[in-house]
Design a protein around this nucleic acid. Sequence first.
DNA 1: AACCCGGAAGAGGG
DNA 2: CCCCTCTTCCGGGT
Length: 689
Amino acid sequence: MSPIHWEDLYPSQIGWSNPLDWTLRETCIHDKWIQSKAMSQNLEKTPTWDSEAGYDDNNNNNNNRQIVLLEHLKPLEIPTLSQLLRTGGLGFPPGTTHSDVEHHLHHHHQQLQGRHLRGGGSDSGGGGGQSPHSKDLEHFAAAQRLAALISASNMKVPPITLPTGQLPMPLTADLLWRYPNPFMPQPPPSPLESHLKAHLPAGLGHDPRHWSREDVSVFMRYCEGEFDLERIDMDKFQMNGKALCLLNKMDLAERCSGAGDVIHNILQLLIRESSGFPPNSPLTPRPPGLMTPTSPAFPASPWPLLTGAVSSANESAGAGATFPTLSHLISQTNSVTLSPAPSIDSQNGGSPKHNEALAAAAAAAAAAASTGITSIHQLYPNPKNNLSSSGSQGQGKGQSHSHTNGNGRAPSGSSSHSDSEDSAERSPSAMSTPRTPTGPMRSPRDAAPTSSTGKEETPELNTNGRLLWDFLQQLLNDSQQRYTNYIAWKDKETGVFKIVDPAGLAKLWGIQKNHLSMNYDKMSRALRYYYRVNILRKVQGERHCYQFLRNPSELKSIKNISLLRQQMEAQAAAHKLASQQAAQQAALHGLATVEEGSNGGDGDRPESPLQGPITSSSSYDEPTDLSMDTEEKRARLHDRYKREFMSEQRSSSGSSAEAAISERDREQHESRFHYSHLIPQVSIKTENF
DNA sequence: AACCCGGAAGAGGG
DNA sequence: CCCCTCTTCCGGGT
């Protein structure tokens, strides 16, 4: 049918190189070739990769070429690997496992090469695709097509740095394996796991991340003996469990060549095993799996997180090579419904057994995934020995009380943290997986009726960390204080926080937004945009210190910031007029505004503040004004003011509604979340600097 | 040098 | 197509 005979094209264009080494173009050709054979009925259409469109290559800093995060995964459109395996979609008999496929591919690749070398390649033209040979190819192709499908969908995968040379294929089988399918159910605990658990030397906790240095030694010795490993140089393992867990396969291999693999796998098993189901991440619970660092098949964490988690910050390091994974931060707006089974999921559909298994698997995967993360973050945030002096403080507060004015249920508004959590947990991610007791969300706070149930009428925005302020809030209010090495409250009451690690935080943000070239400069620009809407302000004189001017609930209830901005600016305009008049008067009196000027021009609006900054309604003037160029800005404000006014009029209740909202908000939240000290706080400059 | 600051343009998603 | 929220650059200041 097709004028082009891919059969002919295939071998000549691609040759018989290792599919894992194919270039984009080769992959494309291959795909088409395969397509021409209509080999797979399960896969509707093969995406073409004839362009580099799939890559974010237009960037100047092309060292950031990447394949994107798994953000907008559309599960139902993508057959999962397991599904394909089940249905034979890959050409493998049902029951074939992930690693089976891998082995199969490898094995046959070798055979293919051999055959080709022996001249067998020629049969591609005549075989019509049914020879064992082409069958083999189909297997390759299937894997690749799956990969292509995955990438073709909006699915985003962890950022990876690609070599600068020729373009690699979009998602080679290799990649596919490395970045396991998110929906691939985690296998049940293997016998090995059980064995491990049962046979660990006494005194060794099951969670390696909690091991002390001595524990690590004990463990290494144990492994040495138990698994008959070559001798391990203990000097190279003078570290605690957390550190040990941060070593990736390669790190381990360096330290104990032969045993590295084994050690790594064991650790991964243990981690997975021991970390039941950590609480949801502060941010978007992400689809399970994709980044599970504990994937049995590829224990090497997909995100090289482990490697550089610590130093990441400083190393402007190329691309995503090093930094803690934010996988759990990755949004899942479209929270992945356990992809595979449209038919299967839902509470009572299909065989309960299968259902259960799926759910469990998903949960397990999720757990596993967050596990890795947790481990990472745990390394940082250790509340004890951490710089996060403020962090610990925040922890106590944020976590337990500080907000819980209504005992019992977590007021959605009270603490930002509960907020975040709230948003995270209530997210549709409820996906097919019913909230089983083992669900990803069983944490202390969760024990209490989750706010998800009690979420008030206030339709709070569920931004899930996609907005910068939300992202920051969520990191700041992480119930486990995992990010205090990046950002921490200086004074939660007043909303003052410090970016401890600007570069690192920027990277996290970059990951979140999938702008891997994000840096502090850019991120801070975004922060600065918040000044004018009174979401943030800079704490004068202190580096990397900012202050939230609105509590999270308030923020969340703001439908869109621009509205807020308009509102603010309108107020500002009004206020400005007033203050100008006042100023004039003052000037007349010779009082002037010395105060204001002295304070770095920021004027901290000491004026209005009586009621606290948050008082959106009563307003205080705009932060902007400081930055403003009077004239111009004023004009602009006026403009906006008018516009806003009009729009308000239009929106019927207009100002009153708005006022109502802010007022309600204040009522609801202010009591639990005061920024009331704002003013003093702000004006206070931490001297030690 | 490392922060800050905002303007300008434009990307990208909704 | 518009709007919003950044992202990316940038020139300038501290």
